[in-house]
Every structure is written in structure tokens, then in C-alpha cells.
Design a protein around this nucleic acid. Structure first.
Lengths: 344, 344
DNA sequence: TTGTACGCGTTATCAC
DNA sequence: GTGATAACGCGTACAA
């Protein structure tokens, strides 16, 4: 392994380790001569500073961690990409961790990051387990440790943590309005897990949009999934067997949409003419589908940037102003006249 | 910030820091009494061990890094997930980094990992830039630093680094055989960037499969993309304008396939009857497409596991046996009789 | 401008 | 079984 330390460099350059350190960290005054010698020696020996030791002294690591809830969800990998780019520009490394929609894995990652003393944490929080109405012990630890943390996408309402989130109210209002105009009366909702704040927000906004459009809410038209593809498939089958025969459906995220659309394709359902579909999160696959799927989405790159900026201000000791992004509704050919209306 | 150290715990427990350390790291013999006291104090104070300091002393970090070339490619996020799970079972953390198909970003991540003294590196290497026929300086550094490293998926043939890869020869042979039986004569190939070993392997195997099936190879039927969606879209347009009017196409990865299929949908091309399509990498979206897309894929979870195992044996000082996974061809409804043959 | 000496938090070594 | 102490690699106050 790499055993070349700053002492070796100093020795080779014929100076003290203090001088070598000064040169290598570009700090205070150093003579041109020793600068040259030290740099030559460092390059020659292939010196790589030990970040462990460095941050042990300086307590700064120039590293943030981003915990997402599912690496395989394109929504989150897009977010990860955006955060990474922004952090990179600010001179910080990003460690990406995957909670796998699981509180335990979330806490393990957080523990690892805490013990590695990252400068800040960007977290898509897993919700509370079942009964528990208080955040996990690990969350408490982080908070009491004072490590700067910002929630992204999801939030935990019990905690006073700055968060960057999105509001789908207006987009859903517009979407439902469009469906109503097309003659749809029974609109189903394939939702996410109640422990995720985004799932709750979308569900609430869906109900509110029905009301504001003069339609009735009906919890029998709500299917509770878990944001993963398999539950989307279940939801699709549930819809096909539904007594009210919904003619339109809104799906809470992209993996569920993909799962559902696969089932409908296998069942020979024609999306559009037979069933109008709107999905949350605009990922490439939604545009590949025939017909292309109408979406409700927001600017993930902007959200990623905002998250890093907010975290930076927390790290600097100031309170970031809360920011809420507004989701956009995009109509596409997956929306069509409701079958009854067309037949009439 | 968290300032509670092992000394504080020791003080509160009324023992020495050495004893506290022994208890907390579960090492050598400790009396039940002090164990109890220390554990209580640690929990009470919310003690989180400082991994920096620990690994400064022990030179072990129980951390590996995985560098993938594109977080947003579901193929790699699946791989990341598999690696993470396996490493987790072995008691190691995984830092995931994203090279973004860019040599510079790759090197930055590698430098950060090197200075953080990770125990080992799992790398999907970016190929050589254009002219350069030697690996990047950073790669050289890593090698001379002796940090255990294993290549996954892709490899750099110039370097003697253990690698876990896949062979698509037999799957492509089978696929081409199937296409030939369906009457296809002009088969196009939307390939990846030549700097990626997987792209070269797939291209070579494609040519070889044509030959072994008694068809002619024709470089005019090869489109050079870059594994990203936009180049798949370009390839799709290229194919539509092609003088030979290929009736079948094989696409080198999933993002390119999604990009291409989107273009063909917009152009009103019926996949199957008008154009037979086979895509590398089996991701959910391929099964959602109507008709479902035939795929050539391999067991990513197994590859991820194998990669971690190989890395562990390198870390232990032994040479891992090279491992090659065999890709599987799965025929689906995206394959149909060639139009000419059907029309005749 | 440079060198000496100390401390960051932890574990390993060695006495007891 | 436990406690003092040295050591890991680096940055920096202080003295020269």
C-alpha cells in the first residue's frame, strides 16, 4: 500500500515536514526554492495526502453525502447527478448512498457518514416505520451532533429541518381539469407509501384537485403502492378488476408507472383510447411509450442545485429560506376522450 | 458539532480510554462491569467513533469505492445496487461515484478515494482519450500505490488488472441466427463508443456472429454511438435514412435503445412487423414497450457479487481467478418475419 | 522564511 | 483485566 507520507517528501526535498506541508497546502509564505524542491519530490514519490489525517486536524472534509431512497429509480439518479455536479462546482465531493426504501439501511449509511465526519448531509428521508411517530434514533443523533443536514424531495414534518421540496397542487389541478374536460368521471390514483411525505402530498393534492374541479373524491379509487415497479403492476391489475372501471389513472412515480404500463400492455389495454394515463416524474421511458405518457414533473436539476446551496448556507451557520418547486403538467397522447363519452 | 470523544466516554464511565476503546471495538478481554459502564456512558453521551482517527491508526477503513460511468444508466445503477448489497454483507461500506462517461471526472473521484484511503476500488474504467494509448496518470498512480483494484464490466486491455466482464459472443450468435431464420439480411448495429471495451467486444462479436451465420459483415451498417440516449436517437434517424433499409437492428445498451425507440415511435415505425429490434441490457422499460423488446443481458447481481469477491481476494493478497459471465439472449415479440420475406 | 513541538481521536503495546 | 503511553499523518502556533 501507499506508505509515502509528507515526511518522506520532506526528507527527499531536504526540508522539514512543516515546510513541505506549507508548500503542499499552498498556505503561508514559502521560498520559491523550497517550493520547487518539495513539489518535485512530491510528484516524484507519487505523494497523495491522507485526507483522514488532514481532516482529523482541520475538521473540514470538503465532502457531503447524499442519501437517496432508491438508486434504481431514475428520478433519484437524476437528482444525484444534479447534486453531484453542483457540489463539484463548489469544490466538494459527493458520496452517494442508497437507502433502498428501507429505514435500516438509511440509518446505517447515516452512521457511516457521521463517523466519517462529512461536512453536511443531503437526505431523502425514509418515513417513520408503521406505528413509530418519532424519527429514528439515528436521526436524533445527527441532529444533536449538529451536523448540517437538509432534506430533499421528501421531508419529515415532525422535524424542524430545512427542506427542498415540490408542490404538485397546481399541476394536479390542471391535470384533473383536463381529464374532466375529456369526460372522465372515475379517476384512479396509484399512490406511494404513506410514510413518504411526497406520497402523502400527492394524494392530498389529488383529492383537493378532484374537489376543486367539482368531482367527488372516493378512497375506493386510491391504491396504496410503494413507489416500486412491482406495486405498480399490482395497482394495474387492481384497476382492471375495479368495480367502477376507472377510465383514467394518475400514477405516483415512474417505476410504478413502468410496472403498471407493462401489465396493461400484456392485458392488451390501449393506453389513450381505453385508459388515460398520467405519471409523475418525466423520465425517458415515458416518452418512449406508445403513446407517450402525460407527466407531472419538476425541474430536478434546479432542485439538486437548490439543495446544495441550502446545505451550504446551513454549513455557514445561517438559516436557508425554505424553497418549494412547482410541478409542471404536460399533456400527451396518453390522454383521450373517456370511452363512455366517446360512445355516447 | 459532535465533540464527544472516547475520552469523554471513559471519563463518564470511570475507566481509562484504553478500556473504553476495548469495549467499544469489542476487542480483547474486558470485565462485564466495565463493559456495562462504558456502553451506558457511550449511549448516554451519544458517542460516535471518529472513523478518520480510527483508520489513521489501523490503516483499515472497511470501505470500498465503486466508480460507475453513468448513474443514470439503469444498467449501472443495478450494478451499484448489487455491489452495495454484497459489500454490506461483508461488513464494508460502499462509496458510489459517477464518472459521467468522462475521464476527468473519473480521475477526480479516484483521487478523492485514494486520499481517503479506501481499502479497495471497483472501477468501470473510462477508456483512453482519443489518441492516448496509455492509461491516465491517475490510473498509474493507483497502480503504483498498490491500492487493490478490480475492473468491472469494462476493462483496459493495456493494464494487467483483474476484471469481471461479460461475453456476448454466444448470445449474439443465437440472436443473429434467429434474425436470419426470420429472413433478415440487412442487420444494423447501433454501437457504443470505441473507448469502452464492452462496446468493442459487442461490435466484434456482432461481426463474428454474422460470419458464423453465413451473412456478410458490412461496416456501413454500423453506427457509432456513445451509450447515451441522444446518440440512440441519432442512430435511429440514421437507420431510417439508410440506403440499405435494414430490417433488423441490435442496440448496444438500454439508454440508446430508449432514445432510438422514441424516435421510431414518433416516426410511426412499427417495431416487430416493420423493424425487428434487439437491445442489450434487460431493464424494466424494455418489457413495458409494445411490443416487448428482445434482449441480450447478463446476471448483473451475480456480476456485482463476483466483483466484490474478487476485490476481497485482491485485498487479501491473492490473485483472483478471472471471471467472465455469459450473456443470455431472450427472444420477444419485437422480432418478426423480415418485411421482404413476408411480402414475397 | 523555516524548523520544532504539539495536538487532532483512536488503537496497539507494554507493563502492571 | 486494566491503565499509561506511543504512534498513525498532518497542520499550525511558536520560536528561531
Amino acid at each position: 500500500m501507499n506508505a509515502v507520507t509528507i515526511k518522506d517528501v520532506a526528507l527527499a526535498a531536504g526540508v522539514s515536514s512543516a515546510t513541505a506541508s506549507r508548500v503542499l497546502s499552498g498556505h503561508s509564505a514559502t521560498s520559491a526554492e523550497s517550493r520547487e524542491k518539495v513539489e518535485a519530490a512530491a510528484k516524484n514519490l507519487g505523494f497523495v495526502p491522507n485526507a483522514q489525517a488532514r481532516s482529523l486536524r482541520s475538521t473540514k472534509t470538503d465532502t457531503i453525502a447524499l442519501l437517496i431512497s432508491d438508486v434504481r429509480n431514475p428520478y433519484f439518479s437524476d437528482l444525484a447527478h444534479a447534486v453531484e455536479q453542483q457540489a463539484h462546482e463548489a469544490g466538494m465531493m459527493t458520496f452517494i448512498g442508497n437507502a433502498n426504501e428501507d429505514t435500516q439501511q438509511q440509518d446505517q449509511f447515516l452512521a457511516a457518514m457521521l463517523s466519517r465526519r462529512v461536512d453536511g448531509l443531503l437526505v431523502v428521508p425514509q418515513g417513520l416505520d408503521e406505528d413509530a411517530d418519532h424519527p429514528s434514533e439515528m436521526m436524533q443523533r445527527i441532529i444533536s451532533s449538529g451536523t448540517p443536514m437538509v432534506f430533499v424531495d421528501r421531508t419529515l414534518p415532525q422535524l424542524e429541518i430545512p427542506s427542498i421540496s415540490a408542490s404538485s397542487a397546481s399541476a394536479l389541478d390542471e391535470a384533473i381539469g383536463k381529464l374532466k374536460a375529456l369526460g372522465h368521471r372515475h379517476i384512479a390514483f396509484l399512490g406511494g407509501p404513506a410514510h413518504a411525505s411526497t406520497a402523502r402530498e400527492r394524494h392530498r393534492a389529488f383529492d383537493a384537485a378532484l374537489v376543486s374541479n367539482g368531482l367527488e373524491t372516493d378512497q375506493k379509487l386510491h391504491f396504496a403502492g410503494d413507489f416500486q415497479a412491482a406495486s405498480g403492476a399490482q395497482g394495474a391489475r387492481w384497476l382492471l378488476a375495479h368495480e367502477l372501471r376507472p377510465t383514467a389513472v394518475i400514477i405516483a412515480d415512474a417505476p410504478m408507472a413502468i410496472g403498471a404500463l407493462t401489465v396493461w400492455r400484456e392485458a392488451g389495454i390501449q393506453v389513450g383510447p381505453e385508459l388515460s394515463v398520467i405519471a409523475f416524474d418525466e423520465v425517458d421511458a415515458m416518452l418512449m411509450h406508445h403513446p407517450p405518457i402525460a407527466t407531472i414533473s419538476h425541474d430536478l436539476r434546479a432542485m439538486g442545485r437548490a439543495a446544495v446551496t441550502a446545505l451550504q448556507s446551513v454549513m455557514a451557520g445561517s438559516e436557508p429560506e425554505p424553497q418549494e418547486f412547482i410541478s409542471q403538467f404536460t399533456a400527451r397522447a396518453s390522454l383521450a376522450q373517456a370511452p363512455e363519452a366517446a360512445g355516447a
